[in-house]
Design a protein around this nucleic acid. Structure first.
Lengths: 191, 191
DNA sequence: ATCTAAATATGATCTTTATCATATATAGAT
DNA sequence: ATCTATATATGATAAAGATCATATTTAGAT
C-alpha cells in the first residue's frame, strides 16, 4: 500500500475546498482544472485519480459546500432555536459572508447552475430545500401559519448576497445587508 | 450607399436581442459569437462590423435589456402609481418572466457578472440603482420612512426569480413566486 | 447598366483547456 | 533492501471558439 490510508482522502478534500472557492467566485467556465489543482498544490494528472471530469468535480464541490456551509453549523448550548436562527441570518447577511471563503452556493452559483447538467440541478434543488427546511425548523413550526412564507425570506437573503457580490460600492452593500437583516427580523415575527 | 439607412441599425438590434436572450439563459461562456449570429440569421464575420468584441457585446446587451425590460414599461393612463407598481411586481414575480424572453438582467446575470470587466460591473450597478429608484418613485416617496427599505424588496424579487429558474419543480416555483408576491404587498404597505 | 462604399460571409489562425497516455514518486509489506 | 499497488506528475492530443484577413453581396447614386 502506498501513502498513508488518509492521504487520498485528504487530497480529495483539499481539491474540493479549492474547487468550491474558485467556482463560487468565478463560475464553472472561468476555472480550469489546472487552476484548481495549483490552488491546492497538486497537478492536473492527479485530478483524474479523484474525479471523472470537471463536471463531476463541480457537483461534488456543490455538495461539499452545502454540508460545510455556515447554515449547517451546529447550534451552541444555551441558545434558543430562535436566537440561533437570528445569529445565522446575521452571519448570512454579513460582509464576511459576501466576500468570504465559505459562501452560500445557493446565492453564488445561482445563475451558473442553469447551464449545468440535470444531476447538478437536482443537487442544487436539494440544497435549496434543505435551507428552507432548516429555517422552518429553527423558527419553530408550531408558530408557522403557512410554511410557504419561508420562501420569501430565503429569496430575500439569497438575492441580497448574490447581488451584493457584484456591486463595487461597499456602502451600498452595507445598506442592502442592513435593510435585509431588519426585514428578516420582521418576517420572522410573521413566520 | 449600400443597403438602406436603417439596415445596420436593425441588424444591431437583432444581434443585441439574440445576444441578451442567450446570455441571460446560458451565461457569457456558454454562448458563442457564432451561436448569437446564427440566432439572428447572420454570420460571424458581420459581427465584428457591429461590435469590437464579445465582451463589448455582453455589455451592450446588458444595457439593451435594461432599457427594454418590463420594469421600464410606461404606466398606462388611469392607473395610480401604486396600482401600476403592483402590476409590475406581479409581472416580475410570474412564470412568464422566469421563463420568458425579456428576463431581468439583475437576476439572470447576477453571478455571471462577477467575472466580467469593471465597465460591465458599473453598468450592472447602474441598472440596479435605477430599479430601486423606480420602485421608490412608484411607491411614492412621501410615504417612505426610510428609502433603504426598498433594498430588501428588490433583493427578494431578484433572488426569487434567479433561484426559480434553476429549479425543475414547477409547483415549488409557483409557491416561491406566490409567497413573494404576498410578501411584496406587505412590504409596500411598510414602504 | 454600372460603380462603389458599406454590410455581410467564408476560410484560416492561434490560443485555451479538458482529457488521455505514460512516467515517476511514495510508503507499507515482505 | 526490494517489491508493488497507489498517488501524483508530465507531456501529448484534440476540440472549441474568438478574432482576423479576405472575398462577396447589397442597393443607392451616377
Amino acid at each position: 500500500m502506498p501513502y498513508s490510508r488518509e492521504h487520498k482522502q485528504n487530497s480529495r478534500e483539499k481539491i474540493l475546498q479549492s474547487a468550491y472557492r474558485l467556482f463560487s467566485t468565478k463560475g464553472f467556465d472561468n476555472v480550469t482544472v489546472d487552476r484548481v489543482m495549483q490552488d491546492c498544490s497538486l497537478t492536473r494528472g492527479a485530478f483524474y485519480g479523484h474525479f471523472r471530469s470537471k463536471s463531476e468535480l463541480y457537483k461534488e464541490a456543490l455538495k461539499f459546500a452545502a454540508s460545510n456551509s455556515k447554515l449547517a453549523d451546529i447550534k451552541p448550548e444555551g441558545l434558543s432555536s430562535r436566537e440561533w436562527l437570528s445569529v445565522l441570518l446575521d452571519g448570512y447577511l454579513s460582509l464576511e459572508h459576501v466576500y468570504g471563503e465559505r459562501p452560500c452556493p445557493l446565492a453564488f452559483l445561482a445563475t451558473d447552475i442553469v447551464s449545468r447538467d440535470k444531476e447538478t440541478h437536482k443537487t442544487y434543488a436539494q440544497v435549496y430545500t434543505r435551507m428552507n427546511q432548516l429555517i422552518l425548523d429553527y423558527a419553530g413550526r408550531d408558530t408557522v401559519k403557512n410554511s410557504q412564507d419561508v420562501f420569501s425570506l430565503t429569496s430575500m437573503i439569497i438575492g441580497a448576497v448574490a447581488v451584493s457580490r457584484t456591486l463595487e460600492d461597499q456602502q451600498q452593500v452595507q445598506q442592502i445587508l442592513s435593510s435585509c437583516r431588519q426585514q428578516a427580523r420582521l418576517m420572522l415575527g410573521g413566520i
